[in-house]
């Protein structure tokens, strides 16, 4: 269905932002997790976005230039979810079971303020994509009125 591929682009934006939102809420919910599967405190996760148009074979560029049209795949995709390598927060809490010999506990490198701001950004981007879905939809419906 190539005439509605702009809907696919908007939908890919929606799902990418939703995934970002999921990861942000995972970060927030694990803000105090000092022990994970690997024995380390929780590390903050980051979602990496990538243009779906990237990484296409060379011949595609040639054929596209000839037609000077936009390619079949548009939109965004999540390329990877990576861990934030920044250092853990050290908190002095000698009674904590995960405290080291000096009494310090490694807390996750999640910053609540950053996560909240990213959440607002994801939610606004989601709304923008919803608007674009609605516009595309009403344009397609309008086209059905030709010749009525």
């Amino acid at each position: 269905m190539s005439f509605l591929k702009s809907l696919d682009a908007a939908a890919s934006g929606l799902s990418a932002q939703r995934l970002r939102m999921d990861v942000i809420s995972q970060n927030i919910s694990n803000i105090n997790t000092t022990r994970t599967e690997n024995g380390q405190p929780y590390r903050r996760k980051i979602v990496l976005f990538e243009d779906r148009n990237q990484n296409k074979p060379f011949y595609k560029y040639l054929s596209e230039n000839a037609k000077s049209k936009i390619s079949d795949t548009q939109g965004v995709r999540v390329s990877r979810i990576v861990e934030d390598p920044s250092p853990f927060k050290r908190v002095y809490e000698p009674g904590h079971p995960d405290a080291d010999e000096d009494g310090y506990v490694n807390m996750p490198n999640v910053d609540l303020v950053t996560e909240m701001i990213n959440m607002i950004s994801a939610s606004r981007a989601y709304e923008a994509n919803v608007t674009s879905v609605n516009t595309i939809k009403s344009m397609a419906l309008k086209a059905l009125e030709i010749g009525k």
């Binding site: 005439f3 591929k5 702009s6 809907l7 682009a9 908007a10 890919s12 934006g13 929606l14 990418a16 932002q17 970002r20 990496l48 976005f49 990538e50 243009d51 148009n53 049209k69 936009i70 548009q74 939109g75 965004v76 950004s121 994801a122 981007a125 923008a128 994509n129 608007t131 674009s132 516009t135 595309i136 344009m139 086209a143």
Partner: peptide, 20 residues
């Protein structure tokens, strides 16, 4: 106009893509 709409939808979905 339709193509422009496609391109805008593409731009909006890539609003947070680095280097786009």
């Amino acid at each position: 106009s339709w193509l422009r709409n496609e391109v805008i939808a593409d731009n909006i979905s890539n609003v947070d893509t680095p280097g786009y």
